[in-house]
Design a protein around this nucleic acid. Structure first.
Length: 286
DNA sequence: AAGAGGCCCTGATAGC
DNA sequence: TGCTATCAGGGCCTCT
């Protein structure tokens, strides 16, 4: 689920529903995520009021008084569910189309006065991390590159950083230390819009293409946010609002379909780059 | 220092 | 129907 646009949607939804609310209780059902949930997380959170909710690339951040922070990462399969009065509130918060909370893999419940939010993560690649100061927060994000939507991710940055890169451009854009917030779906899309072959080494990306990468990175992400993000997996008992950007994919998941550029007769192919699915039209991505 | 590859997990689906 | 293999939106760690 969680590339930058999806986390942004979750953030907005939380801002509507849980901002300025106090955490009354915390249930930790399963500590095993990418990193084991801190022993004292419950103690840290109980009684604290959420005074701000922000997002940095794919990370969601709860802010508390006195520079305490909770960072949530959703990995591959993390979802948040807002549950009011014993039923699931139909908001963007729930990325599952089902109306019931998943029975398995609920790891953490944050309980408020008349609702709770539940973190579910079957594959356990996500994590919760509680931080105790602004310095810790800064340190944490030191290892993360500029966010794709940030003005720091610009032509000059690419010019400097791509110069001697031997790596292919697809892996470069997926590297969160290089630029953060992009995942497999959006990198596929961005390279299609930019007419760049994903195998192209960083050092061979010319200035014209660099500008395209910057332009379309921002454009694709902004549009995806507008559409409420992308939802790949369709659950059968479907109801509820989820993202629609998947309907606008140009290459992702479009194997053997026609290239959507009018002047192009190519077909979309699937190849594997560093064991990740890669979709491209070899005719217009050079 | 940079890059490649293995690995952490569960669940859905395709193919036999 | 039931088995097996493959694939999935991420990123950390280790080795070279």
């Amino acid at each position: 689920m969680p590339e930058l646009p999806e986390v942004e949607i979750i953030k907005k939804s939380l801002q509507k529903n849980v901002l300025f609310k106090k955490i009354d209780n915390v249930l930790i059902k399963n500590r095993n995520l990418r990193f084991k949930i801190q022993r004292n997380l419950k103690k840290f959170l109980i009684g604290k009021k959420i005074i701000n909710i922000s997002r940095k690339s794919k990370y969601l951040i709860f802010h508390f008084k006195e520079d305490y922070f909770l960072i949530i990462h959703f990995g591959m399969s993390g979802t948040l569910h807002l549950i009011k009065n014993n039923c699931i509130h139909q908001s963007n918060l729930s990325f599952y189309k089902s109306q019931t909370l998943p029975k398995k893999h609920n790891h953490v419940e944050l309980i408020f006065s008349n609702f709770k939010i539940v973190y579910n993560d079957p594959r356990r690649f996500g994590f919760f991390k509680f931080l105790f100061s602004y310095d810790q927060l800064k340190l944490f994000f030191k290892k993360v590159g500029p966010e794709a939507l940030d003005s720091k991710f610009n032509f000059g940055y690419l010019k400097k950083k791509l110069q001697s890169k031997e790596k292919n451009i697809k892996n470069i854009l997926l590297d969160q230390k290089f630029v953060s917030g992009l995942g497999n779906i959006y990198v596929n899309e961005i390279l299609y819009y930019s007419r760049i072959n994903p195998y192209t080494k960083g050092k061979y990306i010319n200035d014209y293409k660099k500008k395209k990468i910057i332009k379309y990175s921002k454009e694709v992400l902004r549009k995806a946010i507008k559409r409420g993000g992308s939802t790949i997996r369709d659950f059968k008992n479907a109801k509820g609002n989820i993202g629609s950007f998947q309907n606008e994919f140009k290459v992702y998941n479009r194997v053997k379909k026609n290239c959507l550029r009018e002047e192009c007769n190519g077909k979309i192919e699937r190849v594997v780059i560093s064991s990740r699915s890669t979709f491209l039209c070899k005719y217009c991505q050079k």
